[in-house]
Design a protein around this nucleic acid. Structure first.
Lengths: 200, 200
DNA sequence: TGACCTCTGGACCGACTGGTCTATAGAATT
DNA sequence: AATTCTATAGACCAGTCGGTCCAGAGGTCA
């Protein structure tokens, strides 16, 4: 007889706490900037717990964090883009949310994917695979919505990549500037260009 | 009588080699991912040399690397934008160069500024100041050229931020995708939008 | 009740980190 | 020739890194 695999209460909480803490550290310090001792202190967990839930250690936890971020982002995108909503509008809401997060954290919390993306090397195969899948999934969702909005396949893919780039690049500039302005300006410029194209 | 301050031959070579090596490591692994031992081995320099030229240690060298990158980028931009050339064309050349660099390094070499930007915290004041100045300078140069091309002040600033964001975000996506496509697509989409606006 | 299992807790470890310090080579100055 | 200054060289250090290992806590089975 197969044991029902609903786990105990405590276990998923701890595991989830580790992932959330890792996401937070990736946003603020990046992968190598985040030490295990700091992570465990923030998550209020001893070392053994980490290696129990993630035998692969720090890297495995980072992969889990990347995957959790991917899932979360896709859900949020689906929510914003749901019902064939206008991509420009959805993008506006998305960026607004990011700006609030950045500003609210004193310009410390950026994108958890971006930092890892720039620190990882080709040797970090699992991490890279997770990151590649993440951006791929996000672009695919955007492209799908753009196609629904009347763009052809090539244009949809191009605009999807441009939107993601604007988001990541805008966040990066805003972070070092200690000011949301660069991100807001970049986004506004992109939205204006998109609107003009529509009206053409 | 003032001593002519052309320095000895050896000194600036070593110092420069340290900076160039740091830039390379920032591009491939980021600030925290790059160890001093690796840096010194690549630069073929003993430890004492580093702390002789950069009493501030690793961070001071990173600041110097950021500043050198800024100067280099501004020079290149001036070259591309010189004589009131079209911004779209200049941007195309700029991005093409970055793509060749990325592809030629097996998708390892990205932007030395971006990685540091995401790893640094508000506590790293010098590093942050250097980075803020870097992006500020680059945006200013782009905005100036855009104004020459007939955009008003606000539009020029917005587009400048958008261009930088596209560059950084495109590079990031291409890096993890192991494929220049996302960057090429994002850039092409942006250039297409700019061209449409011109013709409007 | 005893065996088992998942999960927690933390002592412990070797490797490596960034950084300091002293010795010295060699050119420039006196 | 003696001195001074810049630059090179690397031994050395304390602290921290990620990771291993084992002891128990507490639940769920037979």
């Amino acid at each position: 007889m197969i044991t029902p695999d609903y786990s105990t209460e405590a276990a998923p909480q701890t595991r989830e706490r580790l992932i959330q803490t890792m996401i937070h550290l990736l946003q603020t310090r990046g992968l190598h900037g985040a030490g295990l001792s700091e992570l465990l202190a923030l998550a209020q967990a001893p070392k053994g717990v980490l290696y129990h839930h993630f035998p692969g250690g720090k890297t495995a936890l980072a992969v889990a964090a990347v995957e959790a971020t991917t899932a979360w982002s896709c859900n949020k995108l689906d929510e914003y883009l749901g019902g064939g909503a206008d991509v420009g509008q959805a993008l506006g809401r998305w960026i607004e949310r990011a700006q609030r997060g950045l500003h609210g954290s004193g310009f410390e919390r950026g994108c958890p994917l971006a930092a890892v993306a720039l620190e990882s090397t080709a040797a970090d195969t699992e991490l890279r695979a997770a990151l590649a899948a993440a951006f791929q999934a996000i672009r695919a969702r955007l492209a799908q919505a753009l196609r629904r909005n009347g763009h052809d396949e090539a244009a949809a893919q191009g605009l999807a990549a441009l939107i993601v780039a604007t988001y990541e690049g805008g966040l990066l500039q805003a972070r070092v500037a200690n000011d949301t302005a660069p991100m807001a300006q970049a986004t506004a410029a992109l939205l204006a260009l998109l609107k003009e194209k529509e009206q053409k």
